[in-house]
């Protein structure tokens, strides 16, 4: 049993090492900094600039968090501080459903609902033309996917704030919102930060749903109505042809390594913070 546990532990290291080995050829040829800041992507001419993909990933993630953070904060505060049992009985199963739906279903929903909505209703107010397959669409779909995770983390955080603290605030004459804002949320600020980091790392790796609505053009998006091409989509779209060129394969594995390292760091930081809070 000890061996199984230790082997499972080593798996993290083996994974990082394996991906590094595979991406070593391209790292040997092109310096890391150039890989990340160059924006020409022409694999068959040996030009590998990851900037469009990195920017696409960052944009999509930022949109997702900007939408889902206020939504989930208010939902969680409502669930822990305000709501009655009957509301919880509806909202929790609804969040359960959101959490259990597979990524590809979100993709289908995105193409059926969000993409037409953006191209017909929203985009005409801002730009001349948009096909709907945009950075914004990917961000919206992603925000809904991380929503249940954020709400469940927040609910756990808020309900771990001691009742005494709340009672003290009420006794001093503060309203419910003041208590929620200045006591409950302030007390769980590190936890909120950690939860957001965790949600970011979840958003970074989402593949199929984003791939289906983001437009998949290797360009640095100039506005939210431009198509984009995040890193996971890059890997998923090109896995078929990557074996044709050794450098191409190495480039895609570098993309995977990049995701792995960033997600690993984000996860480590947030989990350590959350663990500390849980222990207290």
């Amino acid at each position: 049993m000890r061996t199984v546990t230790v082997v499972a532990l080593l798996f993290v290291l083996v994974m990082g090492w394996g991906l590094y080995q595979k991406s070593a050829p391209i790292l040997g040829e092109i310096p890391l900094w150039n890989l990340l800041t160059d924006s020409t992507w022409q694999p068959f001419k040996n030009q590998f600039g990851f900037l469009p993909f990195v920017m696409g990933t960052i944009w999509v993630t930022i949109i997702a968090i900007v939408i889902s953070l206020p939504l989930s904060l208010f939902t969680a505060i409502f669930l822990t501080e305000y709501s009655r049992r009957c509301v919880k009985k509806i909202v929790y199963p609804a969040l359960d459903i959101l959490a259990s739906l597979p990524s590809v279903i979100y993709g289908v929903w995105g193409t059926l609902v969000i993409v037409p909505w953006i191209s017909d209703k929203l985009a005409p107010h801002f730009v001349d033309f948009s096909a709907g397959y945009t950075t914004l669409a990917a961000g919206i779909v992603l925000s809904i996917m991380v929503l249940p995770l954020l709400v469940s983390l927040f609910v756990e955080l808020f309900s771990s704030v001691s009742v005494d603290l709340r009672d003290t605030a009420y006794a001093l004459g503060s309203t419910r919102w003041q208590t929620a804002q200045k006591v409950v949320m302030r007390k769980s600020l590190p936890g909120i930060f950690a939860s957001v980091v965790l949600a970011v790392s979840r958003a970074l790796g989402e593949t199929i749903a984003v791939l289906m609505v983001c437009g998949n053009l290797p360009q640095v998006p100039q506005s939210v109505f431009d198509a984009c091409y995040p890193l996971p989509a890059l890997i998923a779209n090109n896995y078929g042809e990557m074996l044709s060129l050794p450098m191409y394969e190495s480039a895609l594995m570098f993309a995977a390594l990049l995701l792995f390292v960033v997600v690993l760091l984000f996860n480590l930081v947030s989990r350590i913070i959350l663990r500390k809070i849980e222990e207290n």
């Binding site: 394996g18 790392s201 970074l204 790796g205 890997i235 995977a256």
Partner: peptide
């Protein structure tokens, strides 16, 4: 937390 696409690539 590691995304499944990374598992797939690995």
């Amino acid at each position: 937390g590691i995304p499944s696409i990374v598992y797939g690539a690995f």
